[in-house]
Amino acid sequence: MDYEQGMIGRGRDALEMIFDADSIKENLIDDIQIEAEIGPGAVVGTGLLDGEKATFIANDAQAINPRFNVVYFGVIGMEEAYKMALAVYSTIEADKDKPLEQKRPLVLIVDTPGNGPGKTEEIFGMNKATGSYQLALAEARKLGHPIIAMVIGRAISGAFLCHGLQADQILALDKTFGTMIHVMPLTSISRITKIDIERLEELSKDNPVFAAGVDFFHRLGGVEEIVKKVEDMKATIKKHIAEVREAKKAGQQEKLGPWGRGALGDERGGRVARKKVMEKMTEEYNAVADKYLNA
């Protein structure tokens, strides 16, 4: 396989590389069947990681959705987002009687350029679809399922929020693979903010807050670890699953997920205002709390 071309558009290949040979069962979480017909842009199911069962949720950039013409090249449409949510809820259901340390992991393979834009999507509420998947992931994470997102290609804006940013930990292939993490390309930021592109390019060399790229996200605490080689994906995912599981067993959920990334952003110096603002708010609340709680 030629890795030099990068992994964009190759969500299904990534599944083969990460999970044990012939272990992938699509649309099946134990005996819970997920409707195979819906959301072809999303691939969900169960695979084995050196024999350990895990739920996978990936983008299939080769698929098009015949019912929704906005869904192609990895776009998450309404059907895709709800299918992804069903995979999460079915995982919760399958492990509902298991203790925290035995909840199976979820592995998100991320390569998506966006959520479906369109009139039909707005009429029926695309915002509910993507919100739904995020709440499902947050619920699973809090119940103890380790959730690892592996960015293999594009992780863009709202689609990354939907598919990735609710994970316990986020890993990304090195930028040499063409991995992209951003909200908008600089050209679009320039057009909308009316700031010269030259100035944005200059500033983006060392400003992690708006610049595009995996390394900047790492500094903001948005990416836990950068994976240098495709062959290392499986081992790195497994390592992080083990780490997350340990943290959850020790009751350290606050070190994981979006909240954990907040602390990491502070530690790495990329987002330091956040904590100061939060502390100030707490201080001001504490000063008046009694009056409001005993009204």
């Binding site: 919100g131 995020q134 709440l135 947050a138 619920e139 809090k142 804006s157 990354f160 929020l161 940013l165 609710q166 951003h182 909200v183 908008m184 930021i189 909308i192 903010t193 992690p208 807050v209 708006f210 610049a211 900047f216 996200f217 903001l220 605490g221 948005g222 997920g257 979006p258 909240w259 990334r261 907040g262 952003g265 990329g270 987002r271 956040r274």
Partner: peptide
């Protein structure tokens, strides 16, 4: 998301959803 500080804005959105849950 505020484009001027887009990455930080994105991460904050995820935190709001987390608190909602």
């Amino acid at each position: 998301v505020r484009l001027h500080e887009s990455n930080a804005g994105l991460l904050a959105h995820a935190e709001v959803m987390d608190q909602f849950q």
